[in-house]
Simulated scan of single mutants.
Amino acid sequence: MGRTRKSVDVDRKTNRNTGVKSCWKARAVYLAAVLVAILLGLGSRTFSSRLPEFVANHFGDALWACMIYFGLRMLWVDRRLSVALWGSLLFCFAIEFSQMYQAPWINSIRATTLGGLVLGKGFLTADLVRYTVGIAVSWALDQGCQRLAGITTRTTHIDDDESFK
């Protein structure tokens, strides 16, 4: 007939444990996507002389933005995809606009390999387009993969069930 409060609490605990495990699986998948984006991005810079000119000129920045998107998804697996989309756009645009600031201390950081990869060197409007395309492609891939896997992007919490309050 009805369920006892104890059985409901056990079900909630089981659902939370299952949710925690699936969060870690999702994080692992997004970490793999981050690493693939890094490898492809570094490859596009390293082997630029062997790639078509369009790929060599544009893919590195787009892949950097992909890495940022998947990195945010790795951190925020329980949030909507749009949060990572807008968050990564905001982050990438902020980094690009920060390149207008050319003080000696930050330029010395940008002169290092890691600093140059993370902070860039100088402002380019074209980079904003590259970032937007990279993030849009990442978002579309993410959304498509989630649909194929039958994952809903809206999170619901069992604690929100009004019948138990």
Rank of each mutant, 00 (worst) to 15 (best):
T112M: 08
M1L: 12
V118S: 05
G116H: 07
Y131C: 13
V10Q: 14
R16E: 15
L124N: 03
L51S: 04
L75Q: 10
T155E: 14
S138M: 11
L42S: 03
G115H: 09
G2F: 06
S82A: 12
S82W: 11
T152M: 08
Y30P: 00
D11G: 05
D78T: 11
A56N: 11
A62S: 15
V129S: 09
K25Q: 03
R79C: 10
R130M: 14
K21W: 01
Y131P: 13
E162D: 13
H58K: 13
R147I: 00
V20D: 09
A26K: 09
G41D: 08
E162N: 10
W105G: 03
V34Y: 05
G122A: 15
L75I: 14
W139R: 08
K6C: 07
I95V: 15
T113E: 00
W86I: 12
G43P: 12
F97A: 02
A56F: 03
D11S: 12
N57V: 06
F47C: 13
C92G: 04
T152A: 09
I95W: 02
F123A: 04
I158T: 05
L124V: 01
E162W: 08
C66V: 13
L124H: 06
V83W: 05
R3W: 06
V34A: 12
Q99E: 15
W139M: 09
